[in-house]
């Protein structure tokens, strides 16, 4: 019931056969983004890299430590590597952020639903990101920029804590120089050296220019920020079924068999992570769901 569009159709698993068995990839490049966050480019040690759609995720496995769900943050047009931006928040993510170039890493995936970038053609696009939530949105940004003429106005609205915590800083600056799109960054706190916006993402939504009756909004960030962002989008007149969110829950198996990632009747791993707001509206603000 969640598969009516091309992007929503689930992609085939990386490995045929047992979906619990990862494929071995090799770390090609590492880029330190923030003090606790790195971006890894990884390639399969054998065979082609599977196709993926913007918004999907992989299960990354650190040998002897464990597995963690990480969204793909690269450019789908690059068919050689998987790009993952990983923050050190636990044992497995710490092991992954500590890998060196040349190290082996296990990969299962890609899994999950995608941002509706094809369905959104012809509409204005509002991309709302908070903190590390910019990473799962980056493939969608690459896609809409590469296919600029297929969309109306494009706004990228990004909120983060502090100017020092800004993910993909150089890239954001490059996107800002593109006069054909609107890029607004806001921070929760800043000192006076910061000449940009101070405030929260909903304020950027209120200021952005888009046609609320023909806009597709893609939202990813901490859940509280997404709740505020959805309220601001709805205040602006965007319909609930035009708002798409990337949800986070504890994903262990990624294939709907382990039960951990349930969000009401949805399994975030297979019915998400990208979900249409109208379908989860009744659960969205329920505590501990």
């Amino acid at each position: 019931m969640f598969t009516e569009s091309a992007e929503m159709a689930r992609m085939p698993p990386a490995a045929s056969g047992d979906p619990f068995v990862p494929r071995i990839y090799c770390v090609d490049r590492i880029r330190r983004e923030l003090s606790d966050t790195v971006t890894l480019e990884i390639t399969p040690s054998q065979g082609p890299r599977p196709r993926y759609a913007p918004g999907q995720f992989n299960m990354l496995y650190a040998f002897g430590v464990g597995e963690v769900a990480i969204s793909i943050s690269g450019d789908c047009a690059d068919d050689r590597t998987f790009v993952h931006t990983v923050r050190d928040v636990g044992a497995a993510s710490r092991a992954i952020t500590s890998l060196d170039v040349g190290a082996a890493i296990g990969v299962r995936g890609p899994f999950g639903t995608a941002w509706p970038v094809t369905d959104a053609e012809g509409s204005d696009i509002v991309i709302v990101a908070g903190g590390l939530g910019l990473a799962p949105l980056r493939p969608a940004i690459y896609h809409v920029l590469a296919n600029r003429s297929r969309y109306g106005r494009i706004a990228i609205l990004f909120g983060t804590r502090h100017p020092q915590d800004m993910l993909y800083r150089d890239e954001l600056a490059a996107w800002r120089r593109n006069l054909d799109i609107s890029v607004e960054v806001t921070v929760d706190h800043a000192d006076r050296d910061w000449r940009g916006n101070v405030g929260v993402v909903p304020a950027l939504i209120a200021r952005a220019s888009f046609d609320p009756h023909d806009t597709v909004a893609l939202v990813c960030g901490p859940e509280i920020m997404m709740r505020f962002a959805v309220n601001a989008l709805r205040d602006a007149g965007v319909a609930p079924d035009h708002i798409h969110l990337s949800m986070e829950r504890n994903m262990k198996c990624a294939i709907g068999l382990c039960g951990h990632c349930q969000f009401g009747p949805q399994f975030v791993c297979k019915d998400g992570p990208v979900m249409r707001f109208d379908r989860i509206a009744s659960l969205f603000a329920v505590r501990e769901i």
Binding site: F20, G64, V65, G66, E67, C258, G259, H260
Partner: peptide, 26 residues
């Protein structure tokens, strides 16, 4: 009830790791 978790079981040398699935509970 079908929920499970998965653990890594390593030997002392750290050269072998088993992925072990166990019943889990919500």
């Amino acid at each position: 009830c079908f929920c499970t978790t998965v653990e890594d079981h390593s030997d002392l040398t750290g050269n072998t790791a088993e992925r072990v699935r166990k019943w889990d509970s919500c």
